[in-house]
Structures are given as C-alpha cells and as structure tokens.
Design a protein around this nucleic acid. Structure first.
Lengths: 136, 136
DNA sequence: TGTAAACCTTCCCGTGGCTGTAAGGTCAAG
DNA sequence: CTTGACCTTACAGCCACGGGAAGGTTTACA
C-alpha cells in the first residue's frame, strides 16, 4: 500500500512517516517502480506501535528504545517497564506543575471582580507577589 | 543596573530579556555610554510581571495582552479575568490528557512482570490495542 | 484523447521560546 | 598588564513535526 493508506491505518500522518524515515527511526520503506513508498502489514504495525507510544507521552528517543526492545526477541521486560515507570514519573511531575499553576490562576480569578473597572487583583498579583518582596 | 542584575531580580535570564526586546514584547532598553543595556526599577517590574505570567502558563502572545492591560489605566478587569479563565480551561484540558496518558502507563506497568524474560504486556499493548482491532 | 483531481516525490521554511556558541568589546581588581 | 567577569551581536540548534512549492504519476471520467 502507499503512504497515505499506511498513514490512515497507523494513525500517523504521511508527513510524520516520512519524517520518521528521515531520522532513521524506521527503516527506509520499500519503493515501487514509480518511486512511491510501499508498506506491508509489518511496516504498518511498527508505525502503529510508534503512534501508540507517542500517544502515551514517549518522545522519539524513547520510542526508539521501545522499538529496539520490540524488535529484540531476547529482550527483558524489566527494561520496558523501567521506561514506562520513568515516563509515568515525568508525567506526574508535569501534572503537579500544571495543577499548581491552575491553583494560582483560580486564586487570581476568585479575587478579581472582573467588571468594567481597572482595579484588578490578577494584574496586581502578576506585578507584585513573589512573596517576600517587602523590605524584610 | 546591567542586564544580569535585572535578570537576577526579575527571575528571567539575560538571554530571555534580550529575546523579549527582540520580539518587541518590551521596549528597547536604555543604553549606557558603553552600549550596555540599562534597567531601572520600573523596567525590572515589567520583566518580573512577564516572569510571573509565564510561570502560570501564559504564552508570549497572552503575556503581551496582559502587559497591555497592565499598562492601560482605563482597562477593564474583566478582560484580565477572561484571559485567566481561558488559560485555566486550557490547563484543565491538558491535565486531563496527561492523567489519561498516565492511566494507560499505569495499566501497562501493572500488567508487565518486569523481569528478565521477553514476555511483556507493555510492548504487546503498544503493538496491538487500539481496541476493536479484532475481526469485528 | 484530454484533463482534472488525487496521489506521490523532494526540498526548504516556520513554529515557540528560548539556549548555546562564536567572536568580539568593556570593565574592575590585583 | 593581564585575568576574568561582564557585555554586545549574530547565527545555529532544539523538538516533532506541518505547510507549501515545484514537479512527477496515476486514476477517473467526459
């Protein structure tokens, strides 16, 4: 099948598939007589694997490692598990950051009247508060 | 004061301050006889404002709007509040995405033995499951 | 047979928000 | 008089692509 069909089946865009080939994340695709890339079931499976790995947060370097494991019949599952646990911890950290940011935003919105006047707790917050800005 | 002192006080890097000037987010800094950028208290306050706005998740376009409001004495606080509520909603969406991703990762890790053997629920998950891949 | 649409190819630019590095000028201390 | 810490500009690189140009191929249909 051609690249757009492989894209449709794998969940990646054709652009992305070419890009993955460019950076040697996947092997160069076979080519038809017309120069078009050709994909078989196995190739699509690998692309789908990458799509799934990206969806759950792995970057391309990590995808490469996962793919290496996937291809290696003498792999050890603890390596895959290690990658997953690390990624989970990274997500946890990021989530906590975002929640903290959101708490600040909520606090700001709560204290701002949000009316037609210029007085604004939000802008005051942004201008002032890092706490401990007094002459202590 | 010179740029590195302004950086220290504002919480931005010197690089970032120059970048903000480059993209006209802030007015060009005054220059000393030697060509060095000079910052006064007011300039540092604006930089600090930007640092705080970035910390809570605003991108540079939004920072520009917030700064415009901050500078406008005839502003309406509802505009600032609107920006905060929108940002909060964006963060909420992003948090939910990350939590969903983490749930998948947890599920994978739970079902993977993580031992020396090649059998691995994680890699199976990534290879297979988008659900409904059977011959339904 | 013509032709238009829908594919495909390579190539290079742009994104956001910076950081790193190079190549040089300036300044304060010893 | 040198060393080292500043400062300047300018350009490259990061990540993971997407957009679009300029051209070749294939397919459908009048």
């Amino acid at each position: 099948m051609n690249i757009s069909e492989a894209a449709r089946r794998s969940g990646l865009s054709a652009k992305t598939i070419r890009y993955y080939e460019d950076i040697d994340l996947i092997a160069p695709a076979a080519r038809g007589q017309n120069g078009y890339r050709q994909y078989d079931h196995k190739a699509v499976e690998e692309l789908h694997f990458l799509a799934r790995a990206r969806e759950v947060g792995f970057d391309l370097l990590e995808c490469r490692q996962l793919l290496d494991l996937q291809r290696d019949s003498s792999r050890q599952s603890r390596h895959a598990r290690q990658l997953v646990l690390e990624k989970s911890q990274q997500l946890q950290t990021r989530i906590e950051q975002l929640v903290a940011m959101q708490n600040v935003l909520h606090s700001m919105a709560d204290r701002c009247k949000g009316d037609e006047g210029p007085a604004c707790a939000i802008l005051e917050d942004l201008a002032g508060a890092t706490e401990g800005e007094g002459d202590a």
